[in-house]
């Protein structure tokens, strides 16, 4: 029972901190709900061109069908060519960090970076179970198997700057919007 409450608290903190950092957090109870959420979000975002990394949750959420439904072109290959002109990048992340509202990923595969850096909007999928309480835990977890992976990345909210008159402005070099869909059971989120 305690574990369930912990998971909920973890998520609550994650949602709070991620939102404070400027991300948009959506929860989906189960895969079916996640599928619906994806379609709803795509309808709202209306991207003409989507780039995505295949595998994991994305496989299960039938992104190609969703893209087709809204009439968007979807690319999962040759991303260096397609990502610069894409309107949306979609990928799954490995970890969430409650304390900072961040999402993290072994991004050794360059595709993962291309979809999350170049398009103006990044839609990230995250399993509720992958949310760890602290930054410290996340970093040590990332390195626990064979030491640190070649490229590990943590994202906290959209790309931002305050370099002109200290006015916060989003979307400098990376996405100006970060949407995080957290998929989990009702007992978790």
């Amino acid at each position: 029972m305690a574990a369930v409450t912990d998971a909920k608290e973890n998520f609550a903190l994650f949602e709070l901190m991620a939102t404070a950092a400027g991300a948009e957090v959506y929860r989906a109870h189960g895969l079916a709900a996640a599928k619906d959420r994806l379609v709803t979000l795509l309808k709202l975002l209306r991207p003409g061109k989507i780039v995505a990394c295949e595998g994991g949750l994305l496989e299960k959420l039938a992104l190609p069908a969703a893209a087709e439904q809204i009439g968007a072109a979807l690319f999962t290959d040759r991303l260096r060519l397609h990502a610069p002109a894409a309107d949306l990048g979609v990928s799954e992340m490995d970890l969430g960090i409650a304390e900072t509202g961040s999402i993290a990923q072994d991004a050794t595969d360059v595709k993962k970076r291309l979809v999350s850096t170049l398009p103006p909007v990044h839609l990230a999928l995250l399993r509720a179970q992958a949310i760890v309480p602290t930054f410290r835990e996340a970093i040590l977890k990332a390195a626990e198997k064979n030491g640190p992976p070649p490229y590990w990345t943590v994202i906290t909210g959209p790309s931002r700057t305050a370099d002109i008159e200290r006015v916060l402005t989003v979307g400098v070099h990376g996405p100006y919007r970060l949407l995080i869909v957290v998929v989990g059971e009702e007992s978790e989120i």
Binding site: M17, A21, D77, R78, L79, R80, L81, E99, T100, G101, S102, T108, D109, V110, K111, L114, F135, I139, A142, G147, P148, P149, P150, Y151, W152, T153, V154, I155, T156, G157, P158, S159, R160, A162, G174
Partner: peptide, 25 residues
């Protein structure tokens, strides 16, 4: 800057692959 974390934190250990517009890695 009074942030818990910057928007991006990158941890690099050795080189990774790059992709060219032609699709080569």
């Amino acid at each position: 800057t009074g942030q818990q974390l910057t928007s991006y934190l990158t941890m690099i250990t050795g080189p990774t692959k790059v992709e060219t517009p032609e699709g080569e890695t």
